[in-house]
Design a protein around this nucleic acid. Sequence first.
DNA 1: AATGGGTGTTGCGCACGATGCAACGACGAC
DNA 2: GTCGTCGTTGCATCGTGCGCAACACCCATT
Lengths: 252, 252
Amino acid sequence: MSQTVDRALSILPLLAQGPADLGQVAERLGVHKSTALRLLRTLHEHGLVYRQQDQRYRLGARLFALAQEAVENLDVREIAHPHLVELNESCGHTVHLAVYEEQEVLYIDKVESRYPVRMYSRIGKPVAITVAAVAKLLLADLSEPERRAVAEKLDYPMYTSRSTPNAGAFLKELTVVREQGWATDLGGHEESINCVGAPVRGADGRVVAAMSVSAPNVVVTAEELLTLLPLVRRTADSISREYSGTTRPRKA
Amino acid sequence: MSQTVDRALSILPLLAQGPADLGQVAERLGVHKSTALRLLRTLHEHGLVYRQQDQRYRLGARLFALAQEAVENLDVREIAHPHLVELNESCGHTVHLAVYEEQEVLYIDKVESRYPVRMYSRIGKPVAITVAAVAKLLLADLSEPERRAVAEKLDYPMYTSRSTPNAGAFLKELTVVREQGWATDLGGHEESINCVGAPVRGADGRVVAAMSVSAPNVVVTAEELLTLLPLVRRTADSISREYSGTTRPRKA
DNA sequence: AATGGGTGTTGCGCACGATGCAACGACGAC
DNA sequence: GTCGTCGTTGCATCGTGCGCAACACCCATT
């Protein structure tokens, strides 16, 4: 570990609390003013700190730019995949990963069931948005007015007798999902198929993706599938941690 | 300027482009692996980089948190946001907010167009400084020598045939913008996209941010877009008023 | 199993670069 | 004008970051 860098980086959280002048920085670092000056200069050249008119330093907009660029290059799919495989290996069922984009929910990854009976779905295909567990999870994270706007615009096809019948029921379901932090689809899309899912969250807590485990009745009952819920949530949380770059891969 | 810190900080933009392993980092820094390792470790301890399961490095959660705080310190953004949304609701086009910092112009907020055809841009990304309407507005407010100094240092890429060709033309354009109090970009960055923008001023009259409305030719012509100018200016003025009112002159 | 190329990691001696000091310059207050 | 405060600069000294080389490890190949 490098002392110089260590000191320089310690300046950042310090400035996050508010602007500070050279003297304050030097004092709080426990170094000579000239040292603090050199460190600040270096940070300044990289745009991480900004010097305002009164000569005090504050965090620079470049930080924001960096973070923004990083999220854009972050690939949930790549990060999630090994976790999905692992989950599939321990329970054997089909695992899906989906994202919300432009008023649509899309599957972006899938690990096939190891049982002979498989459900039909396809990566890149829009999800049955009013009934799928992953869709509920993704929409539940939107703001209340957004949820309402989307819900009003949707069609509510009755795939089965247990499909979500209308906007009112859908919004109610979203509220439940939002509170409990997980979702199910019990025969809402195809009579004989059940799903249980959980959300993947980014560093800011917003839901960036959702995953689910699906299995047909002939393999496991809905009750049995629900016993997988803790496992599914743990997996989703692992992905969230890795996606958001949390240093401690420990408890939620 | 500190060499060690300089090297360490150079790693950040490198990782913003995507995950990289130790060897790649060392190579791109032009240092020995062991040196890169020590730097990465230090960054890691501060949570700025995260080590994923395949041992590659990425930007970490702490950086996102810092970026968040950095942007919260720019209180123009908070104040402006509702106004931008309102403007978007009344005209439907993409709305941007940008600031000037350290020889760069950065988008710090954006409200997406409600039309299906959208333009590409990204908050946090440096703006095409020689052509964008917001860039002209921000630079036009600098003092004459500052403007000249910046103009000389810039490159003038010809994104299109209507891009600003050189420093002379740019300075002339800045003078015009300065006098008229608004700016345009008519196909200067992308052939089919036009923008019209206006400045946000602080209590002392200085330009603290700039906003613009952008739309592609296929949706509205340049002439039609220009009819929005009064609306854009009114919005910018509203933001200026609110910002001047709430800005607390701690030590102006 | 044994081999070899590819990683990341460690210990070390040397020299370079970061450090603190002191002196200087620029402002503002009184 | 004189102080006091704050940022800045040049410099000698020493600490610390540096590259090297050897090591540990994984996995693919044979």
